[in-house]
């Protein structure tokens, strides 16, 4: 427990009208760990990523990276300081090739110049298994390759903290395994990973710790097996409890 905290959320709150997406949320992500986030639709998982990455402003509370507050920084500044997210629905630059998609991330987010950016791009493309698609215009890619590209683009920014938003969603089992092994490799290189996932199997096999959110609040936190064994978490996932019925769905 003495490990340094890379990311710290301190009583973060956010609401859209009457919908609460974060209600005094506090937890930390340790340097080098993989922390999974589970919770029903509308629990505020993606909104949480938005607040960490800078797409959304927090109403109250603070988010700190290595002790430095992020909340007043723009998305681009946060990317340059090492906080990079992927999107649940991949958002490739559809008119650009895979190589160009990753290169722009290496140049802008990674701050690399000339051949260094090219080298980083080629490495990341190799690491994410996109080498054979390097010259393909990304708008023509299938879902698995688009998901790989989301990860590749984020990695090219040279992240300290990687925010993965449902990279395994919508994929077949073998495809999920491929992505899980990519994420493990990234984490093994020392990148801290915060991972939202509905494919619990993928998550449990990879993460060190698990956090369960519902209605913008922290329901449980701990080892994956312990968290999933808690009655309140089971209730949420079996979909029998009132907590699920009340949960507003379809939020970004």
């Amino acid at each position: 427990m003495t490990t340094e905290r890379l990311l710290e959320l301190d009583a973060v709150s956010k609401r859209f009208g009457r919908v609460v997406v974060a209600d005094g949320l506090s937890f930390g992500v340790r340097q080098g760990e993989t922390l999974g986030i589970v919770g029903p639709n509308g629990a505020g998982k993606t909104s949480l990523f938005g607040m960490i990455s800078g797409d959304l402003r927090v109403d109250t509370g603070d988010i700190r990276l290595s002790g430095t507050s992020l909340t007043s920084l723009s998305t681009a500044r946060r990317v340059r300081s090492g906080v990079v997210r992927t999107h649940q629905v991949p958002r490739p630059f559809t008119g650009m090739t895979v190589f160009e998609n990753v290169l722009v991330a290496a140049q802008q987010g990674g701050g690399l110049r000339a051949s260094h950016a090219v080298d980083r791009t080629l490495e990341v493309i190799e690491e994410t298994g996109l080498a054979e698609h390097a010259n393909v215009v990304s708008g023509r890619l299938g879902l698995l390759s688009r998901k790989r590209l989301e990860v590749a683009r984020a990695l090219a920014c040279g992240p300290r903290l990687l925010l993965l938003d449902e990279v395994a969603g919508g994929l077949t089992d073998p495809e999920v395994d491929t992505l899980v092994s990519i994420v493990r490799g990234v984490n093994a290189r020392g990148v801290t990973v915060l991972w939202i996932e509905h494919v619990v199997r993928a998550l449990v096999s990879t993460v060190d710790r698990l956090v369960c959110l519902a209605l913008g609040s922290l329901v449980a936190e701990g080892k994956p097996s312990e968290v999933l064994a808690r009655p309140e978490v089971k209730q949420i996932f079996l979909g029998t409890g009132a907590a699920v019925d009340e949960a507003p769905g379809g939020l970004p």
Binding site: T75, A76, R85, P92, V104
Partner: peptide, 11 residues
């Protein structure tokens, strides 16, 4: 192509 995603890679 996508100005929001561009910001997300540091542009």
């Amino acid at each position: 192509d996508d100005d929001h995603a561009a910001e997300g890679v540091g542009v």
